[in-house]
Simulated scan of single mutants.
Amino acid sequence: MRRILVIGAGLIGSRHVDAVRRHPGCVLAGVVDADPARRDDAAPFFRDLFDVDVAVDGAIIATPTGLHHAQGAHCAARGWHMLIEKPVATTEEQALDLAQVAARANVRCLVGHHRRYHPAVDVLREVIDSGAIGDPVSSTLMWSVRKPDDYFGTLWRQSEGSPVMINLVHDIDLLRFVLGEITDICGFGADHQRAGGRVESGAVALRFASGACGTISFADTAPSPWGFEAATGENPNIATSGQDMWWITGTKGAVSFPSLTLWTGARDWSQAPRADRLPAQSAVPLDAQLGHFIDVIDGRSAPVISLDDARHTLKTTRRIEALLAADIKTGRVVHVV
């Protein structure tokens, strides 16, 4: 039974606590959070990471991104293996330094891009890699919700609450995972609804190393049925719609996600493609990720998302955030090579 410490008991941290309780291979060693209202009477509670005085095998860092580097270094110094929520750090330099610190401490690390643990994502990647739709040509992805006003009640979200770094980082990781590296980015952003001075909606155009092109349309000010959480029902805080939110075309067909509807059989526009629904198993991604983390702790498995892999997702996400923020300030579309 591995002893797991959860650092941060907010929206995602509380879900990690529940996952640890459910998993037969671990126990909740304790919870760390600055807010005493988040105390868990069923496990030791600590207001500060330095106060932890119980045995720990692995730590789940689920605090705001700005704390990841310092807390990760603390965990490494204490010999705790780590599952670090996304984004892995605030900057690429911090992510690289954390990887070096962990390596010196012989600590194994996994980054919490948990959507890779959806069985449907594995099927989608197999469709692309198998050539079932030919060479990928285009990708269209949507994410649109309206976050409640009290979501921005915490100070860090008032200044750093852009959906790019908080939400789209997941989608960008999946784009890299399924379609390969992103080489070119352009786009524009908007902040005209809440007028908080941060990116709240926008559109991004991408080019992949393969030559395929893609788009992302996003907003945290517009309720809709389109978005990964709504489509898959993975987040209890977001209503489930079951609607597709990602469409990929290729030279021989197309596929939509998460329904995994595969369109093939058309030679050109004179023929109607045939639709087939591909099967995928069901799983709770956070539970699957925790099971993998235990395997990483025990040395039975290499991390599915390493610090280095997550650093590349962070790099691309920060490029998008920077160019959209610049567009808001200047009103001019920016292209980043």
Rank of each mutant, 00 (worst) to 15 (best):
D191V: 06
M165W: 10
A76K: 12
D35K: 05
I248D: 11
A43D: 09
P148W: 05
F46R: 04
H23A: 14
K329Y: 06
P279E: 12
G291Y: 02
A283N: 03
K147I: 03
D18K: 14
A288R: 14
Y151V: 06
R274K: 12
W247M: 07
D309M: 07
G112W: 09
R176L: 03
G180A: 01
F46H: 08
P258K: 11
P36F: 04
A73T: 09
G189V: 09
V169I: 15
I328S: 00
G214N: 09
F50I: 12
L179A: 07
V334Y: 09
A89L: 00
S241P: 01
T63N: 09
S138N: 12
T65I: 13
A34Q: 13
V164T: 11
G253R: 08
W80P: 01
K315C: 05
F188L: 06
G8C: 12
I128S: 02
V333S: 11
F45S: 09
G265P: 05
A212S: 14
G8F: 14
A231I: 00
S256E: 10
A89S: 12
H335G: 07
D57K: 03
T249I: 06
G211Q: 06
A209M: 07
M165L: 15
R176N: 05
V17N: 02
D308R: 12
E200I: 06
G227M: 04
R47P: 06
D184Q: 04
D295F: 14
G161D: 08
H74V: 13
A325P: 01
W263Q: 08
G187D: 02
I60C: 04
A310K: 06
Y117I: 07
R15P: 00
A105R: 13
P236N: 05
H16P: 02
G79R: 12
V337H: 15
M1F: 11
K315A: 10
A326Q: 15
V56L: 02
A29V: 01
E160I: 02
L49I: 13
M82V: 07
D97K: 10
T249F: 03
S130C: 07
N167I: 04
A302N: 13
E85G: 11
H170C: 09
L141Y: 06
I61N: 10
S306T: 07
S301Y: 07
V17T: 01
V169T: 15
L174I: 15
E85I: 12
S306E: 03
S306F: 12
G233R: 02
R194T: 10
H192P: 00
F177Y: 13
V304I: 14
A326S: 14
V27I: 13
V334F: 11
H68A: 07
R116L: 15
D97S: 14
S224C: 10
A222N: 08
I248Y: 07
A102V: 05
I297W: 10
W143N: 15
R207Q: 14
A95R: 09
G253S: 03
K329S: 05
T63Q: 01
D149A: 05
W156T: 14
A70P: 11
I4P: 02
